[in-house]
Design a protein around this nucleic acid. Structure first.
Length: 469
RNA sequence: GUCCCCUUCGUCUAGCCCGGCCCAGGACACCGCCCUUUCACGGCGGCGACACCGGUUCAAAUCCGGUAGGGGACGCCA
C-alpha cells in the first residue's frame, strides 16, 4: 500500500482513442501495482467543445477496457470558483497581473516575431503597467520568473531543463473570466494531491510553466512521466485516416478488451522478451521507468495476433456471449435451439482472429448452405460424390457416436472399407455441410451439428448434384 | 525561427545506466519446410537493424562530442 495518487484527465471532445487509453492504462497500472489511487477527471474547461456524449463515450471505453477508477469522475467545470480564488490570491501577491492587450494585437505580434525569427512569446507590455483602466477587458497573466531555469526529472525521459527566458507570462484567466487549462490542471492536481502525473509527451513543454505555478502557489510539485505518442503506419500522429482510433471501434471490429490492453501495454513498454501478459502479470511487472522514450507505430497485425491468442485460449462460454451481438447483427438468434453456441465457438477458436471472423465462420451452423462451392465440388466426379454421400449418410444413420474423435474414427473406418483416401471423403462432406472448403474438422462439424441435421444436409446436397449437374 | 524531445530488423522491442557474455536476442509480418481431412493451429528454419561522423578504450549498440533526420511545443485549445 502506498499513498501514490495518479489521474487520467481526458478532455471530453471525442471518444476515447487508443493513445488516451494507453495513458489511462499506464496510470491504472501504476496505481494498482503500488496500491495507490487512480482518479478520473474530466477536463471540460473548454465549454465550447465539451459534450456529454464524449464523456459517456470515454467512460464506456474505460469500462470496456476494465480500467476502473477509485475516485471521480470529477469535472473541472465544478471547480470554477476555486480557480477564481487562487487567481485572486496570485494577483493579491503580485504574482499575477491584468493584461489589457487584445487578442488581435497579440496575434499580430506573434506573427511578426515568427517572421523575424524571434521566439513568439509575450513581450511583457502590461507586466509593469501601473494604471488599471476601468471597464477595459483584460486577461490575467502569471508573472513568470525571467531568469534562471526550470527543470524536472521525468520518470520516463530523464532530466529536462528549460531556460526561463523561453517561457513567457502565460494567461491564466481569459477575458470572459474563465481560467485556462495550464492553470486548472495545476490547481486540480494540487488539491487532488496527485503525486505522479502521467500524460502524453505533448505536455512536456507545459511542464515548466506548471512547475512555476505550483511553486508560486506554494504547492508541492508532483513527479512527471511523459509517455511518447502513438503514430500511424506512416509515422505521423495517429489519426482517423490511419483507420480506427477509438477503442470502442476495436470492440465493434471484434477485438477482445484483454487483447487491446495487452497490445497497448507493450507499445512503449516491455518486460524482457515477454509478449503475453495477464492483468495480474501486467500489474506485477509494470514499471513506469521501463517505458521507452520514443514514439511507436500502431501495428494492427500484432494486435490481430494477440486477439487470436486470446480467442484461442479464451473461455468458450464467455466468447459465446461476446459473439452473440455479432451473430444477431447477421440475423441469427443463437439461443433458439441447436447447435449450442459454446460448442460452435470451440470449433472456431483456432480459426478466428476476431469475433467478426468467428461470427462469419459460424454462420453455416445456423443456416443450411444455400449454395455449394462449385469449383471445389468439381474436383470430384458426380458418381464419387453420390457414393460418398450415400455411404456417409448410411454410416452415420446407424451409428450412435457423439464425439468428434469418434466420428473421425468412423470416417477412417469407412475409408478403409471403401478404399477411399480421407481427402476424397472429408472434402465432399465438408462442402455438403458448410457449403465451402474452409471449415472446422469433419468430426467437429458433425458433432456440433448433430447426426440428424448432418444427414438432412447430405440429402440436400445429393438433390443438388442430381438436379444441377 | 526558437526551445524541448527522439533515433537498434518493415513494425513492437531486449540489450545501453554498471563498456567485453552482442559479427546484437525475442515478437508480429513475410518466405520456405513439416504436420494435416479443408481452412486454420502448431513445430522447425530463413530473411532482416545498432542513423551518420569523429573521439575515449586493449575492447563501444553501450561512454563523450558533433552532424543529419524525425517529432513536439511556441493559443484568451486541452
Amino acid at each position: 500500500m502506498s499513498d501514490i495518487r495518479v489521474r487520467f484527465a481526458p478532455s471530453p471532445t471525442g471518444y476515447l482513442h487508443v493513445g488516451g487509453a494507453r495513458t489511462a492504462l499506464f496510470n491504472w497500472l501504476l496505481a494498482r501495482k503500488q496500491g495507490g489511487t487512480f482518479i478520473l477527471r474530466i477536463e471540460d474547461t473548454d465549454v465550447e467543445r465539451s459534450t456529454q456524449e464524449s464523456v459517456d463515450a470515454i467512460l464506456q471505453g474505460m469500462q470496456w477496457l476494465g480500467l476502473d477508477w477509485d475516485e471521480g469522475p470529477f469535472y473541472q467545470s465544478d471547480n470554477f470558483p476555486l480557480y477564481k480564488e487562487y487567481i485572486q490570491k496570485l494577483q493579491d501577491q503580485g504574482k499575477a497581473y491584468k493584461c489589457y492587450c487584445s487578442a488581435e494585437e497579440l496575434e499580430a505580434k506573434r506573427e511578426l516575431a515568427m517572421k523575424e525569427g524571434r521566439k513568439p512569446k509575450y513581450d511583457g507590455t502590461c507586466r509593469c503597467r501601473a494604471d488599471q483602466p476601468a471597464g477595459q477587458p483584460y486577461v490575467v497573466r502569471f508573472r513568470a520568473p525571467q531568469e534562471g531555469s526550470t527543470s524536472f526529472d521525468d520518470l520516463i525521459k530523464g532530466t529536462i531543463t528549460f531556460p526561463n527566458e523561453e517561457l513567457d507570462d502565460l494567461i491564466i484567466q481569459r477575458t470572459d473570466g474563465t481560467p485556462t487549462y495550464n492553470f486548472c490542471v495545476v490547481i486540480d492536481d494540487a488539491i487532488m494531491r496527485i503525486t505522479t502525473v502521467i500524460r502524453g509527451d505533448d505536455h512536456v513543454n507545459n511542464t515548466p510553466r506548471q512547475i512555476q505555478l505550483y511553486e508560486a502557489l506554494g504547492f508541492p510539485v508532483p513527479q512527471f512521466a511523459h509517455v511518447p505518442m502513438i503514430l500511424g503506419a506512416d509515422k505521423t500522429r495517429l489519426s482517423k485516416r490511419h483507420g480506427a482510433t477509438s477503442v470502442i471501434a476495436y470492440r465493434d471490429m471484434g477485438f477482445l478488451p484483454e487483447a487491446l490492453v495487452n497490445y497497448l501495454v507493450r507499445l512503449g513498454w516491455s518486460h524482457g522478451d515477454d509478449e503475453i501478459f495477464s492483468r495480474e502479470e501486467m500489474i506485477q511487472k509494470f514499471d513506469i521507468g521501463n517505458v521507452g522514450r520514443s514514439a511507436s507505430v500502431f501495428n494492427t497485425d500484432k494486435l490481430l495476433w494477440l486477439n487470436a491468442h486470446y480467442i484461442k485460449t479464451g473461455d468458450p462460454a464467455r466468447l459465446a456471449e461476446l459473439l452473440t451481438p455479432f451473430l444477431v447483427e447477421r440475423g441469427i438468434n443463437p439461443h433458439s435451439g441447436n447447435p449450442d453456441l459454446a460448442t460452435v465457438v470451440k470449433t472456431l477458436q483456432e480459426r478466428a482472429r476476431t469475433m467478426i471472423e468467428m461470427a462469419d465462420g459460424s454462420l453455416f451452423y445456423y443456416r443450411t448452405p444455400e449454395s455449394y462451392d462449385a469449383a471445389a465440388l468439381s474436383k470430384f466426379t458426380k458418381e464419387h460424390l453420390l457414393a460418398v454421400y450415400e455411404a456417409v449418410a448410411l454410416t452415420l444413420g446407424k451409428s450412435t457416436t457423439q464425439t468428434a474423435p469418434e466420428i473421425d474414427a468412423l470416417f477412417k473406418e469407412l475409408c478403409a472399407e471403401k478404399g477411399w483416401k480421407m481427402p476424397q471423403v472429408g472434402q465432399p462432406v465438408r462442402i455438403a455441410l458448410s457449403g465451402g472448403t474452409q471449415a472446422p474438422g469433419i468430426g467437429e462439424i458433425i458433432a456440433t451439428l448433430g447426426i440428424q441435421e448432418t444427414v438432412l444436409r447430405l440429402d440436400r446436397v445429393r438433390d443438388h448434384i442430381l438436379t444441377c449437374q
